[in-house]
Design a protein around this nucleic acid. Structure first.
Lengths: 167, 167
DNA sequence: TATTGTTATACTCTATAACTATA
DNA sequence: TATAGTTATAGAGTATAACAATA
């Protein structure tokens, strides 16, 4: 159950601000790597790539995972509410729900109170998959903690949450 | 010179793990906001939106800024080297250079040593724009420091750099 | 044979306008 | 009149294959 895959090959030293070229000559990236935006993007890409590898057996993208998780924790909410909470535009959320429904993971139920809206819920299959997905997600989190340590990982999450209030 | 715009309206409290819906009912997002990947993506989007606003007068995207900065700090390198350092695929970097050249910000010079490759450099105009862009970038960094404080901002950059070694 | 720059192309994400059915 | 879901569509960003020129 405990993930051992992750803490293996770690670069022990790296030239702090440079990137290796083909013949070994290094590029100066100091201006970029000292500001928040650039390493933020690189980290996001790395974490999502790692996510893709781990979730390949479950066939879930980050967006699908976050949708399943949010529906599971908020059953009965409609599409607009779930989409808005996840920062997904309503038009783009339609195909998302089409696919989850096609795979038998989630259901839309035309609400009796307001017949315009679709109450969303997970199917039993969807709940099972979400349970398994959260285990896999926990493994990624453990891999991150192997790199950062518990305290720095928690500090990172807190800093990122504050950063999200910038825009 | 010091940016005062940023530290103004900050949410003083927020329900730690929930999102407001239209009628005020809150969604449970606790499972997502406690893992790294989700706030990482939200923070990245927020920082890039803020970047887009600040750089609208200079008409620079994050990718264009990082390209200008890297060429400026590494003049004479060829397209493959600059693109690889920035994680941009060579085919996609062609249009990037086309546009920077069209705007008179950068130049490709067919190398004498290896006539396959284009040595890249900034034009005087490009150097001027880069100087101005770094001032704007410094303002974003100051705005982030208004939110996080100096120490937490530096800790964030360090954590993000480590995270990028995950994939 | 391998590499640099390039073209063509495709696939995903994201964004906007407009329709329909309900309210 | 406004809202929920939907369709159509357009634009980024990102990915791969293949070609010409050069090594």
């Amino acid at each position: 159950m405990a993930p051992k895959l992750a803490a293996q090959a770690r670069r022990e030293f790296e030239p702090p601000e440079a990137e290796a070229g083909p013949e070994g000559a290094l590029l100066d990236l100091s201006h970029l790597s000292s500001i928040v935006g650039y390493p933020l993007r690189r980290a996001q890409m790395a974490v999502f790539e790692d996510f893709a590898r781990r979730f390949q057996p479950l066939d879930l993208t980050p967006a699908q995972y976050s949708t399943l998780s949010t529906i599971g924790d908020n059953p009965g909410r409609n599409q607009s509410e779930i989409a808005a909470a996840l920062g997904i535009l309503r038009p783009n959320f339609v195909a998302m729900m089409d696919e989850l429904e096609r795979r038998g993971l989630a259901e839309r139920t035309r609400s009796g109170v307001d017949r315009r809206s679709n109450a969303l819920a997970l199917t039993p299959t969807g709940r099972e998959l979400l349970t398994r997905a959260r285990v896999v997600q926990g493994e990624q989190e453990a891999a991150i903690e192997d790199i950062l340590g518990r305290g720095e990982r928690e500090a990172l999450v807190e800093a990122l949450r504050k950063l999200a209030t910038l825009a």
